[in-house]
């Protein structure tokens, strides 16, 4: 999904603002209590069955209102994803939450026109089968197609849903620098399509390949799944899409 979350290489966000640390000690982990409440509610939402895997939760955060994504902060984004999934799972309704909000102190000072982050789908996707084990590593019977040192080129386009191939690393040539065995494939797992484990690789890209004309004295490594990768020299047609 070419969403607002896919920030790598985007320009115009200005300088990195470090946390304002108090005079003594480090910046607080949670700046306000509600941030910790969102963290706790995300744990509770998973236990309540609002989602069955992290990929689905990450995609719910990607699907929130894009203005809210940039303006509500990290825990505001989590809140948007959490509310989206709680509503889609039928655990709460938006009307019920709005009614509760109207009874809360402080409601008078908030604007009715503020962006609501949550974006529940009218027809939610199915969950698919439950996780087949703990963690994210799974055996893959097929041998890995690439070995350390192999040249690869990444897919140029991805599906409209969840993917872990960022836009800045698409259609680029890199080198396999580590092979990590089989891992759950987020692109299917986020959408109820099952774990479909795939070989995972660290792929290293030169600065010149990613950002021609820029500072060249660095490289960027990403952990990419086999369906994102093609052997260097593949025809353009093959490189068009992520394929299973």
């Amino acid at each position: 999904m070419d969403g607002i979350h896919d920030l790598g290489g985007k320009q115009g966000y200005g300088e990195v603002c470090r946390d304002q640390a108090p005079a003594a000690g480090p910046a607080p982990v949670f700046h306000k209590r509600w941030e910790a409440a969102v963290f706790a509610m995300v744990n509770a939402g998973a236990q309540a069955g609002a989602w069955t895997n992290t990929d689905r939760f990450r995609h719910a955060v990607e699907r929130i209102d894009p203005v809210a994504y940039l303006s509500h902060g990290y825990y505001g984004r989590w809140l948007g994803g959490l509310e989206t999934l709680l509503v889609e799972a039928g655990i709460i309704t938006t009307a019920e939450l709005e009614a509760r909000l109207a009874t809360r102190p402080g409601q008078l000072v908030s604007s009715a026109n503020e962006h609501v982050a949550a974006r529940p789908a009218m027809v939610p996707e199915p969950f698919g089968p439950p996780p087949r084990g703990r963690g994210s590593q799974r055996p893959v019977t097929a041998a890995p197609r690439f070995a350390v040192g192999a040249g690869v080129v990444t897919a140029r386009t991805v599906c409209a849903g969840h993917t872990r191939l960022p836009a800045y690393a698409r259609g680029r040539q890199g080198c396999i620098t580590a092979v990590h065995g089989g891992w759950i494939f987020p692109d299917t797992n986020a959408h109820g399509g099952g774990e479909c484990p795939q070989h995972l690789y660290t792929v290293t890209f030169s600065a010149a390949e990613l950002w021609p004309g820029g500072d060249a004295h660095f490289d960027v490594s990403l952990d990419l799944f086999e369906p994102y990768l093609f052997a260097t020299g593949s025809s353009l047609a093959q490189q068009q899409k992520v394929t299973l």
């Binding site: 982990v29 949670f30 306000k32 209590r33 509600w34 941030e35 910790a36 409440a37 969102v38 963290f39 706790a40 509610m41 744990n43 509770a44 939402g45 236990q47 309540a48 809210a68 509500h72 902060g73 825990y75 505001g76 809140l79 948007g80 959490l82 509310e83 709680l86 655990i91 709460i92 019920e96 939450l97 509760r100 909000l101 809360r104 402080g106 409601q107 908030s110 604007s111 503020e114 609501v116 982050a117």
Partner: peptide, 28 residues
């Protein structure tokens, strides 16, 4: 507004028994 919405959601989940009363303090 996201803080107010989080607090409203918290009260709803507490009422439904989906969030333990001590869960937020435990996280902190």
């Amino acid at each position: 507004p996201q803080a107010l919405r989080a607090e409203a959601l918290e009260s709803l989940l507490l009422e439904k028994g989906l969030l333990d009363a001590g869960a937020v303090d435990s996280v902190i």
